[in-house]
Design a protein around this nucleic acid. Sequence first.
DNA 1: CTGTTAGCGCATTCAG
DNA 2: CTGAATGCGCTAACAG
Lengths: 376, 376
Amino acid sequence: MTKSRVTVVDIAHAAGVSKSTVSLVLQASPLVNEQTRAKVNAAIRELGYVYNRGAANLRQTASSKIVGIVVNDLTNSFFAELAVGMDMVMQSAGFVQFLANTGESIDRQREVIASMREHGISGLIISPARGTEAADFKPLTASGVPVVVVVRNVAGAKVSSLLSDNRAGARAATEHLISLGHRRIAFLGGFADTAVSGERMQGYREALSAAGLDADASLVVNSAPSRAGGVAAIERAMLISERPTAALCFNDAVAFGVCDGLRARGLEPGRDFGVVGFDDVIEAQTAVPALTTVSVDPQGMGRRAAQMLLKQINSGRVEAEATIASVRLVVRQSCGAKTKTWDGGKTWDGGTSHDTAPGDTGSDTVGTDRRQHDRA
Amino acid sequence: MTKSRVTVVDIAHAAGVSKSTVSLVLQASPLVNEQTRAKVNAAIRELGYVYNRGAANLRQTASSKIVGIVVNDLTNSFFAELAVGMDMVMQSAGFVQFLANTGESIDRQREVIASMREHGISGLIISPARGTEAADFKPLTASGVPVVVVVRNVAGAKVSSLLSDNRAGARAATEHLISLGHRRIAFLGGFADTAVSGERMQGYREALSAAGLDADASLVVNSAPSRAGGVAAIERAMLISERPTAALCFNDAVAFGVCDGLRARGLEPGRDFGVVGFDDVIEAQTAVPALTTVSVDPQGMGRRAAQMLLKQINSGRVEAEATIASVRLVVRQSCGAKTKTWDGGKTWDGGTSHDTAPGDTGSDTVGTDRRQHDRA
DNA sequence: CTGTTAGCGCATTCAG
DNA sequence: CTGAATGCGCTAACAG
């Protein structure tokens, strides 16, 4: 049953024309007679012809319409949302994407990048595994393949990057807790050795010192950026001699875990203990008034990254521009006191507009979109 | 800077041999002199040569080492886990995967399948969008491309499928709630028109009638299979004249929403109201004793589906075998009474072993793995 | 063991 | 408007 592939010559033969005529029909060229076109199309349908992009891409002028997407942890909803955002714009641009999950393994990452290269991707978006170095992208960029790095910065890499304003977000969130009267605010979850964690911690410390509070090191509790990690972190935090009354969580997974842990002790998050989570994917998943969050809008970020990449692919020019996306502080009623007002609905350039639920949710965009151009 | 691609002839020239010798080296053929091999490899490294799979696949005997993966909602953690499982085995088998998210859009699905076909995928795994018909796979299977359908069955399609035992799982879960003394048990979430929902509902009804309880239609509350949907569902369920005391939730997202809704009314899930969720991804994400769940182990299912596909690709024979994967009922302490014991750690064939947290969690495998062979 | 030759399916001149 | 010729990078026969 394995039919041998039907090719242009087959349908050319069936339609009684030559292969190049068929080729012209395939590209919707106006240079071909209407009748002929109809005959050719009929033959195509009849024989079940499928265009072979592999062959087409072989021609030197062709660009592959394939991009690579590499993600460090698809299990984390944040990155899944990110991938969905990318998928959206890639699909509408007629691209298809290789997606690979590295699970933080730098070896896997190297393998998949190599593999994608062999398959002729014309661009790459990557949320790099921990420990990724600038050299890892060198082969790509050297052969003119644009690369966009998202979420985590890679020092010294001459590639475009799209990061979120972690420092400003953490600072705003911490200030929010302070404004509610909290004085002992913990920072829970994440590992100290990552850049993202470092930036968020910095914003947290800035807010504390600006308010004249001293940053007690014991208030910082590292843990895995997962729900289980959040449980562990809040449990350790509750053992601190002078207990915190609120926490900034590295992650929304951590925030969920913290809520679990609080409830296990009979405390209601938001009412008895202030909780703010980062990396908001909750917003999209639930209408429940829950935690206050610092939303980086992963899906929007994905769309934006994809657009950055497409721009470079289409222009044929690879850039190395770092852009820092602003984040939004989304305050929900459960955190008690205050409701900030929504700033008017900022949307990503070219993206679809982002709905914000009206009513008891308000948000503030914090940080500014800024770009810094590096040149070789 | 856009260097023109370096090809086999270039390195053949540099190494002072012919292209076919280079080709032999690339395939690690033993037919080539050790010295020559070294020279060739040196030239490869030197000139930064990258293998061009597009060209290689052009040869008629070649198989592309590319598979397609189509998912209906990557935003749902269940499907993200599923994709991760597939990714694992595909990567280790040296395949790269096109991943596309359809978001339940059947048009998008058609587009991406067509696109993948043009790119020469040698197999497809798909969790079909609602409304997918057997005819949608016809072009693939007709050209000898194996297809594995997961999660949702597509009636009449001559493809392999891997489904979970929804009926048995729902029945076991319901029986569990009954054994805890519940008499009014609601079925919350999901849409009545989907096959998956229908199967789960059937199991639910079976358990009720086996226990001599009548299946009050008002106890079934449909809603979106999301967290927000769960909130809505429990709110409607609480308006029923004779209130339920427990619920079987279509989804774990729904289950989470139900918990949100219960807490909003001051009820603690598990203690004041029995909650069982389906589609367990929670297990992997948290160590918190939470709901009782019916776990279909999405990641393991993904691995298994990938193995099924690879088998067909490698054997060159496309099959149409339906296999129903058994599910596990995971009972956690918070559901109150009873703790069942773990059956010994069933693992998927060839998969890595699945850790089960010891301690306060027990589980039972329900349903049996069964296969039914369809032949054309 | 190594070199020669001939396509794979398609797009692109260049002539009719 | 259409047909014949050429090459993309690689592999598979077949000779040396």
